[in-house]
Simulated assay, not measured.
Amino acid sequence: MGSKAAKGGPSQALTPTQAGRYARNLAIPDRAIDIFPVTCQEMSKGRTNLEVLDAVMAAGAGIIQMREKNWKKKAIHDLALEFRKRTYGQQILLIISDHVDIALAVDADGVHLGQEDLPIAAHVGLDLV
């Protein structure tokens, strides 16, 4: 697998998914990320994750982390797909909590691995860690 060249862009060896991610990230403005919102429906005072996402997007956040610890994997995947649809091309990075497979499946920009998840060494070589 290739890597991003230091100054000239991606190397020739990027996969289509990596190339798409690289192209999307080029559109992210050169600005500091000063807020890092994390969604969790049970902590959102009656709002759905999508309502929170829409509010975060309207407020101008450049990144969002989707986190649902107690949901079934299929429900997390379905929500992640909708998050990706809404954030794609909108200059908002999407981070998925805990599930490298879901992050890869929806072409997320990154994954957050907590202390109870598989160690980073188990995911070496993936383009999200």
Rank of each mutant, 00 (worst) to 15 (best):
L104C: 07
A105V: 00
I96W: 07
P119C: 11
N25W: 07
K45V: 09
T39Y: 01
D98Y: 11
R24G: 02
Q91F: 06
E51Y: 09
T39W: 00
S11F: 02
A58T: 08
L126W: 08
H99G: 04
K73H: 13
R24I: 04
D98V: 10
K69H: 00
M57Y: 06
A6P: 00
A32K: 15
R24Y: 06
D78C: 07
L50P: 05
P29H: 11
Q115P: 00
A32N: 10
D101I: 03
E116F: 01
M57C: 09
R31F: 09
S44I: 08
V106D: 03
M1D: 10
R67C: 06
H99V: 01
D109I: 00
Q90E: 10
V100A: 06
S3Y: 11
G62M: 09
Q65P: 04
I33P: 02
D34P: 02
I64P: 03
A80W: 04
L79Q: 14
L118D: 14
H99N: 13
C40P: 00
N49W: 07
M66S: 04
M57A: 12
A61S: 15
R47E: 12
C40W: 08
H99L: 01
A80H: 03
Q90W: 00
N70G: 09
A59F: 04
R31E: 15
V100S: 02
L81V: 13
K72P: 07
I64W: 03
A103P: 05
D101P: 05
D109C: 00
K45I: 10
T48V: 08
G20W: 06
G60E: 10
L128S: 05
A19T: 04
P119G: 12
R31I: 09
E82N: 01
V56S: 08
A55L: 11
P29K: 14
G110T: 04
P119T: 14
S11N: 02
K72V: 05
I120G: 01
F36K: 09
A59C: 11
D54R: 13
K45C: 12
L26E: 09
L53H: 01
L94F: 07
A5N: 01
Q65N: 10
G46R: 12
A13K: 10
G60I: 09
G8Y: 15
K45G: 10
H77E: 14
I33R: 15
I92Q: 13
Y22T: 03
K73N: 06
T39C: 00
K7M: 04
A122L: 05
A13H: 09
T39G: 04
L104D: 15
N70A: 10
D54L: 06
L128R: 02
D127I: 01
Q41W: 03
G125C: 07
I92T: 14
T87S: 13
F83S: 01
K85H: 02
R67Q: 11
D109A: 00
I102F: 10
G9Q: 03
Y22R: 04
G2P: 06
S44H: 06
K69F: 02
I96L: 08
E42L: 07
A58G: 07
Q91N: 15
K69D: 02
L93R: 14
M1S: 11
D127H: 09
P29E: 14
